[in-house]
């Protein structure tokens, strides 16, 4: 057995190393556009704001997402089911702007098996990193217009009165489908975070 290395904050200065986004003299490993030309599925945008306990925008936040493809398969060796030959990786990273805004262009994920083998409702894993956060916090983006949410085994573990914080609202903008998912670290509408 080996004991794990503790987490430390990403701090205020991560952007030049982890999310340079052409603002710094360094290459991006990952970006906010997950869509590959060969990826099947519905193109969507997931976007929102990250807010602190005063409702103030967190402008030095890094957001990462991890998701299945439209067929509900993860591009990972731990998902041993066959998957279509596509370049879609399902991982994205971005930094919030001065208003605490983030956004990802991606495809809507399919359903993946849940703890009991029943399919879960479509969802995206999301991790929040920032100055003042000594470790990342994990949440899940669900899609508010999905009927499957009502049977989702993970949502069922969330107190009913807090479930709405995990539901991204659907809208259309310039012909594109946009799901809005604000992340509130504290307050009455504090986003549900998971101990995983």
């Amino acid at each position: 057995m080996a004991a794990i290395t503790p987490s430390q904050t990403v701090g205020p200065y991560f952007a030049f190393g982890l999310a340079p986004n052409r603002k710094y003299d360094w290459k991006d490993t990952f970006g906010s556009d997950l869509v590959t030309p060969d990826a099947a599925g519905e193109r969507i945008r997931i976007e929102g704001r990250v807010l602190d306990g005063d409702g103030a925008p967190i402008d030095d936040c890094m957001i990462e997402i991890w998701q299945a493809n439209a067929q509900g398969r993860y591009a990972s060796p731990a998902d041993m089911r066959p998957r279509p030959n596509t370049a879609f990786r399902g991982f994205g990273r971005t930094a919030t702007d001065a208003d605490g805004r983030y956004g990802f262009d991606t495809i809507k994920p399919g359903r993946v098996p849940g703890p009991d083998g029943e399919p879960q409702a479509p969802h995206v894993l999301l991790a929040v990193f920032a100055r003042g956060m000594l470790r990342q916090s994990y949440t899940r983006v669900y899609f508010a217009d999905e009927a499957a949410n009502a049977q989702d085994a993970i949502l069922a573990l969330v107190p009913a009165e807090r479930r709405a914080t995990l539901l991204a609202a659907k809208s259309a903008r310039e012909g594109r489908i946009v799901y809005t998912f604000d992340i509130r670290m504290q307050g009455d509408a504090e986003t549900v975070f998971f101990e995983i």
Binding site: G53, A56, F91, P115, M185, Q186, T191, F194, E195, I196
Partner: peptide
């Protein structure tokens, strides 16, 4: 570490089982 005060979740985290979503990674 003062910046944690307004940025740490205050409500209990929800414990969930690890599904394929948590057990996979890039």
């Amino acid at each position: 570490y003062k910046s944690t005060v307004k940025r740490a979740p205050t409500k209990p985290l929800v414990t969930i089982p690890h599904t394929l979503s948590e057990l996979t990674g890039p």
